[in-house]
C-alpha cells in the first residue's frame, strides 16, 4: 500500500496554486489535510500524477468572523483549529457538535473542512452540516471567483461543482439567527466511523414560540448530502409538539435515498433516519426555546 509516483508542488500563493492546476488539469489534485486523499493514494485507488500541496499557501489557513457574523473557513483550516475555537462552539454549535463525530483527534489534527467538502463523500458529516447551515463555497480560479451554495455544490458521490481549474478557497457559514436551536446526531457502528445515518436539524422559533424555520439534512442518505425540505416545511407554523416532530421525521424518510452498505441495509438506514430526525428535531426544539 504505497502511493504511485507523482510530481509534488508546494506553491506559496493562491495564484501559483491555481496556475499549476490550470496547467495540469485533471491530472492534478490539490492536497490539503490529505486524510481522505492519502489513504486513497495508498490503496492506489487515486493516482494523481501531480499533487499541488496547499499547506504552504499563505492566507488559506485562517478562520475569520466576517462583519455580517458569518464564519469564513480557509481551505487549509484544520478541524483541530475549528474544534478548539470557543466562538465556534458558542455561535455555531451545530458545527461543533458534528465535528466531534468526525473520525478521531489524530485525523482532525490534519484534516481540513475544505478538503472534506471537496472530497464530497456523501457519508461524511460535514457536507450535511453545510447544507443545514446554508453554507456557501468560495471557488477560485485564475480568472476570478464565484460562490456556490452548499445545496448546489454536491452533485454526486465524490463529485462537486468544482471545475477542473477551480479550487475551494473558503467556506462561508452564515450566522444562526436568534431563537435557533440545532442538533446533530448519528448512528455509526463505532465512534469515529462514517455514520450509517446522520442528521443535522435546525429549528427557529418565532416570538410566539412557533416554528418559523426548519431545516433537515442527512448524511449516508443518498448520493449527496440529502436535505428534506418537505418534511422541514411541514414543521413551519407548528408548535413543535411531539406529534409535529414525529410526523416530520416520518415524512423525511421519504425524501432520502439511502443506498445501503456492508454495515446497514437501506431499509435500516431509512428507519434510522426517522428515529434520528425525531430525536434531533426534539433536541433542536428544546435548544431553540
Amino acid at each position: 500500500m504505497k502511493p504511485a509516483p507523482f510530481d509534488w508542488h508546494a506553491p506559496e500563493t493562491v495564484d501559483a496554486a491555481l496556475a499549476l492546476k490550470a496547467a495540469h488539469g485533471e491530472a492534478a489534485r490539490f492536497l490539503a489535510g490529505g486524510q481522505s486523499l492519502v489513504p486513497a493514494m495508498n490503496f492506489r485507488v487515486a493516482q494523481p500524477g501531480v499533487l499541488i500541496d496547499l499547506n504552504r499557501v499563505a492566507g488559506l489557513d485562517s478562520l475569520d468572523w466576517l462583519a455580517d457574523g458569518s464564519l469564513r473557513v480557509g481551505a487549509t483550516v484544520r478541524y483541530r483549529m475549528i474544534e478548539r475555537d470557543a466562538a465556534v462552539a458558542r455561535r455555531l454549535p451545530l458545527l461543533a457538535e458534528a465535528l466531534a463525530e468526525v473520525a478521531h483527534p489524530q485525523i482532525r489534527t490534519r484534516g481540513t473542512l475544505g478538503g472534506n467538502l471537496s472530497h464530497a463523500d456523501p457519508a461524511s458529516e460535514m457536507p450535511a452540516v453545510m447544507l443545514a447551515l446554508g453554507a456557501r463555497m468560495e471557488l477560485r480560479r485564475a480568472s476570478g471567483m464565484r460562490e456556490v451554495a452548499a445545496r448546489d455544490f454536491f452533485l454526486g458521490p465524490l463529485t462537486t461543482a468544482l471545475a477542473e481549474d477551480e479550487m475551494l478557497a473558503a467556506i462561508i457559514i452564515p450566522p444562526l439567527p436568534p431563537d435557533t436551536g440545532t442538533a446533530f446526531l448519528e448512528v455509526a457502528r463505532r465512534r469515529g466511523d462514517y455514520a450509517m445515518m446522520g442528521v443535522a436539524a435546525l429549528l427557529r422559533r418565532d416570538g410566539a414560540g412557533r416554528c418559523a424555520e426548519a431545516r433537515l439534512a442527512f448524511c449516508s442518505a443518498g448520493p449527496t448530502p440529502m436535505a428534506a425540505p418537505v418534511a422541514a416545511a411541514s414543521l413551519v407554523g407548528t408548535a413543535l409538539t411531539g406529534a409535529d416532530i414525529a410526523a416530520a421525521a416520518e415524512a423525511a424518510k421519504a425524501e432520502i435515498e439511502p443506498m445501503g452498505s456492508v454495515q446497514a441495509s437501506p431499509a435500516y438506514q431509512r428507519h434510522l433516519a426517522g428515529v434520528l430526525a425525531a430525536r434531533a428535531l426534539t433536541l433542536a426544539a428544546e435548544r431553540a426555546a
Partner: peptide, 27 residues
C-alpha cells in the same frame, strides 16, 4: 494499516497527534 484507521503510526506533529501514514515526508 496505511489507511489511517489503526493508529499504530501515530506521532506528534507540532505537538498534536497525527497519523504518520497519511502524510508525505516532504510535507
Amino acid at each position: 494499516c496505511e489507511h489511517g484507521v489503526c493508529g499504530a503510526c501515530t506521532i506528534l506533529w507540532d505537538g498534536a497527534p497525527a497519523r504518520a501514514c497519511l502524510a508525505f515526508a516532504v510535507q
